[in-house]
């Protein structure tokens, strides 16, 4: 049912890789959260994920769901609850593609 997994490793594609690891100037909301003015998309994902882990924000009944605290709401569209599965997409919203 799923489309065939004809995926290529990201490291083969320098543009995609750059999109993931290049440092980006952050807007003020994100800057507050990370505590630095520049970060890559990967770095931001890791810091959000570790924030969730250290503050035990995963729902105890369903680990796939994260109950956002105030700080997390600030950066994740103000949602009170998100699914872990949508976390990468939500983070991607903060890192728009460069207009060509």
């Amino acid at each position: 049912m799923l489309p065939p997994m004809a995926r290529k490793a990201i490291t083969d594609d320098p543009k995609k890789l750059a999109n993931l690891i290049d440092l980006v100037n952050l807007p003020s909301t994100l800057r507050e959260f990370v505590g630095q003015s520049q970060i890559s998309r990967l770095g931001f994902f890791n810091s959000v994920w570790s924030y969730i882990k250290t503050n035990n924000l995963q729902d105890p009944n369903n680990k796939n769901v994260v109950n956002c605290d105030e700080k997390l709401k600030m950066i994740l569209l103000g949602k009170p609850q998100i699914e872990l599965a949508e976390l990468p997409m939500l983070i991607k919203l903060h890192f728009p593609k460069d207009p060509k």
Binding site: I10, T11, K16, E86
Partner: peptide, 20 residues
């Protein structure tokens, strides 16, 4: 794996999941 490769794997799977 490198951080990038690991993240890419995870992100891709989640993307497929969403589409599915």
């Amino acid at each position: 794996l490198t951080d990038c490769a690991a993240y890419e794997g995870l992100e891709n799977e989640l993307k497929w999941l969403k589409k599915a």
